[in-house]
Design a protein around this nucleic acid. Structure first.
Lengths: 101, 101
DNA sequence: TTGACATATCGTGATATCACGATATATTTA
DNA sequence: TAAATATATCGTGATATCACGATATGTCAA
């Protein structure tokens, strides 16, 4: 049985899987959902996620460590924003799945 | 600061996160990639994933347990297929990300 | 410089995931 | 029925993730 399938390259699958795992947490999906709609400081993100600030912080750090977010400090606040160009497409896809439920 | 954002419902985020986590493994992404292109028995899937059959089996079971796949036996073989309608859209999105790299 | 505020890190125990070898089940063929 | 084939499950140690409280860092205002 020959293999005529058009398969994604292995290395790419590893990247993609890592990205999906980083997003595989409700709080982190919420964060990305929020940052799709603007740039916000940790405190506001934490509030919108209904999380203590230090937990929002950890999720933000993880997403940033995976290259999905960037941050910049302004005064005492640190603002986070979407960094990975794959995210908008992915979140749109997820929103579409939500709307078709 | 009022919250005028259009956020996805919490319960949906939990579903989506669970789905993403199930997909957050290179072998499981490979499996879904394969099943997007046909219906195959465990043995062939294992070969294409370069995994021992019993490991492919476990990944298939996990995906099925999350409702992402279905299976049906025919003779000694068990054929798996895509069950969740969100998968094609998601995989297309991932393929698009790959092609734009 | 002190205190307050905003964010970040650390240490921890609890739980989940992982890969692997061993074993079990189901189905067909001899 | 016995053996072979194809899948599935179990037990395990190793590693990762999680939530939480405690503590640390960076910045501004008094």
């Amino acid at each position: 049985m020959e293999n005529t399938l058009d398969l994604l390259p292995r290395e790419f699958l590893e990247d993609a899987a890592e990205c999906l795992r980083a997003l595989g947490h409700p709080a982190r999906l919420r964060i990305v959902d929020i940052l799709m709609q603007g740039v916000f400081p940790v405190g506001e993100i934490a509030e919108m996620c209904d999380l203590p600030p230090h937990q929002a912080c950890e999720h933000l750090r993880l997403l940033k460590a995976h290259g999905l977010l960037n941050s910049r400090r302004r005064g005492r606040s640190v603002f986070y924003e979407i960094a990975d160009p794959r995210l908008p497409r992915l979140i749109d896809c997820i929103r579409a799945a939500c709307n078709s439920e």
